[in-house]
Nucleic acid binder design. Structure first.
Length: 426
RNA sequence: GUGGGCGUGGCCUAGCGGUUAAGGCGCCAGGUUGUGGCCCUGGAGAUCGAGGGUUCAAAUCCCUCCGUCCACCCCA
């Protein structure tokens, strides 16, 4: 077949791997989660903060920990045209701490209570509940190291999940010590594992080198006996860490927050100290954590600020919504139009536009019908949108200076003077 | 980064070597001259994920790539 000289078909693009479009039908869920987060944060006196989507790469590379997956293979790194080395934010806490230092927030009353809703980026292999761009609701309380604040933070996350209407989730809690006591434990753990490395899975041999605490978290059957007999972190806690954790659990008891002590719970970022926690939904998938965090008393100092304690958590919108849908939690629907304005002839278009404007002026949602479409088509459209009223402007109405207002919920229909419609619907 | 399942109009699905790729939802237009939700009729819309190969013949078989889903890993 000879070439016909047809223009080449333009390239069709798809959203990048691991990203998704948020369509109108998804929006009620997002709005619901966001509104609930904002409401609960307001109740706890947390204030909104927004930080840039990209930062100097060091903000993340220096804080998360050299051996962590996030730093080693998940950060979106790029150089801008000026040669600066930048990174898309893989997590929120480090950026907020950078902002805390940069804006002198240490001189505000402590602790500074902050929250954010922002996209995070991780170059990861996507699967259910895991995306390369995901949105996190996070909260941070900076400047007070008292376990009282830990209790507040966990209470905030707990309240948020409850307010969303999720049920049956569990809170896992642990303490992983601090700079004083953890090194000794890590040494003991390594000493224990060293003679057994041939018995472990391959991943654990890597963990042994890079992130020994994660040895405790391995799910391989062959590693379980080793974990069961391993030295216990809780036996190595210093007095301060032990007292801190004891106070926290007492506060949680007072708050009637049920938690499950999980001595093998560790976190993926190196900056965590003492308290760590994770919330898991009733129906667990592989990506089960729907909200997790911990204390990070060394982080601000790591970023060049004065030694400042802090604690926070992150909760992923996509996973929360996944569980809202699984549990069939009802969310408020987007409000339907109050009025659909149908016009039947071109000469009525101007009247339709001004009528729509005046009705919107009294706070009613108005959707305009399609020009040149039949009345029947416009009524079908109005019905599909769930509109309450249809204002019809045809030749008759135009001549008489009126509109026909049809009630789609009932069957009634009446004629109103053009200039009285807005007042009538206000 | 490792393993496995799957990729057919916007969505869901049938077809699994052989005439113009079928149906449902949705969309558009009609069912007498200006009236919705139900129903009926018609229409538009598919490089059968992409590229290569086997064959007289491929949506159907093979390879590669891409995407997607699931698990590992990691984490929200």
């Amino acid at each position: 077949m000879a070439s016909t000289g047809q223009p080449a078909r333009p390239t069709r693009f798809a959203a990048p791997r691991g990203t998704a479009d948020l369509l109108p039908e998804d929006w009620p869920y997002w709005k619901y989660v966001r509104d609930t987060a904002e409401r609960v944060c307001a109740l706890f006196g947390y204030q909104r903060i927004e930080t840039p989507i990209f930062e100097h790469a060091g903000v993340f590379l220096r804080t998360a920990g050299a051996g962590t997956d996030i730093v080693e293979k998940e950060v979106y790194l790029f150089e801008d045209r000026g040669g600066d080395r930048l990174a898309l934010r893989p997590e929120g806490t480090a950026t907020v701490m950078r902002a805390f230092i940069e804006n002198g927030m240490a001189s505000r009353p402590q602790p500074v209570r902050l929250y954010y809703v922002a996209p995070n980026f991780r170059y990861d292999r996507p699967q259910a509940g895991r995306y390369r761009q995901h949105t996190q609701f996070g909260a941070e309380a900076v400047g007070d190291g008292d376990p009282f604040v830990d209790a507040e933070m966990i209470h905030l996350l707990w309240s948020f999940l409850r307010e969303l209407g999720l049920s049956g989730f569990t809170l896992k809690l642990n303490t992983i010590g601090d700079q004083n006591c953890r090194p000794a434990y890590v040494d003991a753990l390594r000493a224990y594992y060293r003679p057994h490395l041939t018995e472990t899975c391959a991943d654990c041999r890597v963990r042994f080198e890079k992130n020994p605490l994660r040895l405790l978290d391995c799910k391989e059957d062959r590693c379980r006996p080793l974990i069961a007999a391993a030295p216990r972190l809780h036996d190595y806690l210093c007095d301060d860490c032990r007292a801190h954790f004891g106070a926290l659990t007492a506060y949680l008891h007072v708050l009637a927050i049920d938690y499950v002590l999980d001595e093998h719970l560790v976190r993926g970022l190196d900056y965590y100290t003492r308290t760590v926690f994770e919330c898991h939904p009733r129906e667990e998938g592989a990506q089960s954590s729907i909200g997790s965090g911990g204390r990070y008393d060394g982080l601000v100092e790591l970023l060049g600020g004065a030694p400042t304690p802090g604690i926070g958590f992150g909760a992923g919108f996509e996973r929360l919504i996944l569980n809202l849908k699984r549990q069939q939690v009802p969310v408020p629907a987007a409000p339907p139009p109050d009025v659909y304005v149908a016009h039947l002839v071109p000469e009525a278009a101007a009247v339709a536009l001004t009528l729509a404007g005046s009705v919107r002026g009294v706070g009613r949602q108005v959707v305009l019908g399609g020009a040149g479409r039949s009345l029947k088509a416009q009524l079908r459209h109005a019905n599909a949108l769930g509109a309450r009223y249809v204002a019809i402007i045809g030749p008759d109405e135009l001549a008489a200076g009126v509109v026909t207002l049809r009630d789609l919920h009932g069957h009634g229909e009446r004629r109103l003077a053009l200039d009285s419609v807005a007042r009538e619907l206000a």
